[in-house]
Nucleic acid binder design. Sequence first.
RNA 1: GCCGGAGUGGCGGAAUUGGCAUACGCGAUCGACUCAAAAUCGAUUGCCCUUGCGGGCUUGUGGGUUCGAGUCCCACCUCCGGCACCA
Length: 829
Amino acid sequence: MSGYDPKSIEAKWQQVWAEEKTWEVANPGQPGFDDSKPKSYVLEMLPYPSGEPHVGHLKCYAVGDAIAHFRRRHGFEVIHPMGYDAFGLPAENNAIKTGEPPREATERSIESFRRQFREWGISIDWSRELGTHTPEYYRWTQWIFLRLFERGLAYREEAPVQWCPKDATVLANEQVVDGRCERCGTPVEQRKLEQWFFKITDYAERLLADFDLLESWPEHVITMQRNWIGRSEGAEVVFRCEELDLDFPVFTTRPDTLFGATFFVLAPEHPELERLVAGTPAEEAVREYVNRVARESAEERGAEDREKTGVPLGRSVVNPVNGEEIPMFVADYVLMEYGTGAIMAVPGHDTRDYEFAKAFDLPIRRVIEGEDPEAARDDEGLPYPGDGPMTGSGRFDGRGNREAYAEIVEWLKAERRGEASVNYRLRDWLVSRQRYWGAPIPVVYCEKCGIVPVPDDRLPVELPEVDDYAPQGRSPLAAAEEWVVTECPKCGGTARRETDTMDTFVDSSWYFIRYLDPRNEEAAWDKTAAVHWLPVDQYIGGVEHAILHLMYARFFTKALADIGELSVQEPFANLFAQGMITRDGAKMSKSKGNTVSPAEYVERYGADTARTYVCFMGPPERGGDWSDEGVEGVNRFLSRLWRLCGEVEGRDATEIDAGAVSGDARELLAKSHWAIDKVTRDFQRGFQFNTAIAAVMELVNEAYRVKDALYGGPEGVAVVRFATATAASLIHPFAPHLAAEVWERLNGGRVWEQLWPQADSTLLSGDTVTLVVQVNGKLRDRIEAAVDAPEEELLRLARESEKVGKHLDGKQVVKEIVVPGKLVNLVVR
RNA sequence: GCCGGAGUGGCGGAAUUGGCAUACGCGAUCGACUCAAAAUCGAUUGCCCUUGCGGGCUUGUGGGUUCGAGUCCCACCUCCGGCACCA
């Protein structure tokens, strides 16, 4: 047996797994379905195929594969599929630049991903592979769109949208980061367009409530989603403009400050603005202001420390609680998208209103007393956002604002001037994209019938071929005139197809269901298969998808459950969010030139080394900095294991009689069982792979320490052999090829078919233990004692110690603490 | 500003229930093997004082609880991530 040669070992086992289709599993009712085993659905987020896989992919699939192997070896029937999120902008931008059709670049990239996943030895059920860009897949994406449309969950509306001038497309709110396009960084503009939306806001409450149904999700991911949904409780209060006979409802979380409202502000996009100022002296100034705001980017408008601007309307509304007339303004710090697009301004108790009042010299009124009674008398300490007794609020004076809150809301309701209300930050999901490389929206526009959904039996609406992928403010699909012009499914007349495509987040919101029945041509999935496999038991992916993808998939699952197509409310019972790998402390990027190519390391050290390294770098949920020396360290460890196998393979060994072994043999045997126990617990304790791998390293180190002595007799050889096979078995989830080879050589058979080893508890602890002796809490000596030695015995041993004695001299022991199995602490004075 | 997470050797990190701080890996130093180098194997490696024996100090800072604190409590500092004119 020669040196560790990962290339030949890995090729050998990859061939076995491919030929024997080792990782394929059958659905209920299909031949080969094993109903004796409990199921486990282990899933990593599907990759977006662009170029080659990077280290982030390696980490994600290495982590997921370790979990899949661990579950299989605990007797689970594990479904572990793979696919490609293949629609999207990069392939299309490449097409615009080079003229290469997006399909070709995408297919080439998929081929590269597929080949590398095989070279990494990831245990994938390839029979379930899918690509979201194939008509066989997006047919059903369109089918789901139609189901949502039927339920009123997909609707079309003219709306101000975020428009990226560079990509010439509309973006979802979620894809706008700091006022810029998430993809290309161009400042985003506002436009008004007819767009398709999904009514995710209908599900806001359930998306919040059903966090309770999840088994284990990282707390910070739940928090991020909760903040994103942004639930606020408050009241809707109606302010009336008598002159024009118009009611203006506002949403406020602070109805207790109603008496402090001294002015009233509308968003620049407010639909009633025109009516309020038409033909008045304010008209021109207001129009100018509104136009100026409209030209500004979201970034400019949302800028920090921005001065408050606005224009008075020359109109007033009446405050319902005290009948006071307060002046109206338009100002860009009020957003049309949130609440009602209008606010009551309470400068005494709201920072933004305060700044506006200062800028426009408006009255500021205190209606809640602060903690400092001195400050309560004048403007000092304002704006005051906290709680306290009410003041200047008529009959509510003196009451705590929190107590009076409900009463005020009740009073408003009785007066029909308002009611309790809940608002969400969450907006409906804008899914229209004026782009080519996506799933066409399955709708036609007929002059007679209006919006007509394409009937199910005419799906898929296939993407036509086009010559020019560059968008010009409309979808490139619009240029395919012979495709656009079609017949109305309802009346048979001439109709035009929708030329927008769907956001790719739609494709990835249901792929985990399609895996369960990927070749079904009659339905999106077989319900029996879905009932059997769902939910995903363990989902693994980057934390960058903590909000969007995960929330969209949750929304789809709930909507599909409501429609009767699914029987689960939550798609992912357990979520593991991996941290990002950096290089030299910085995020990897091609422009920085600090990328790490997994293929290069697989070529040089083998897939087992690359996989084990990314799991060893640190806790997988945290990020880590890539280190070439670290990779070599892991490679050294695997080589040591390999050499151990070679040494022990050719030597005669007996059976192990666990009761009879002693000395070094006993220690190595005990270390083996300690490692089994440690690795098992690290897996169960949130995938602490770095410490699990460290434990196997310790086992191999221990074997090296004692092996030469143990090679003297067949019993000793047997123990080294056992330790080596155990190390192989424990490292198998991370280094499956090497583990398979070592196991086959030493024990015969296949390591992945072995049940996970169980630690022999009698070997986990010896007859004696080492205890620490402290004097005043400081470590002074160690003593050996029988496991079951009584406390008096331990104290006697401690006092007898020479080293301890020095610290007791001339002092009085005032207290003795004995923790059996751990320590003795003598307190002296 | 709000909401999360984290601060431990030269570096990545470990410490499971309040009980041996620094496991494992990297790096470094020394030795064995070698004509030599690489590879490999072995030893040492938190800091300070000490020839040695030994002693003192140490988990971002300052307090506290406790026989005993990296771990619990209070106050603060720094870094990272998310959200942000959301009424």
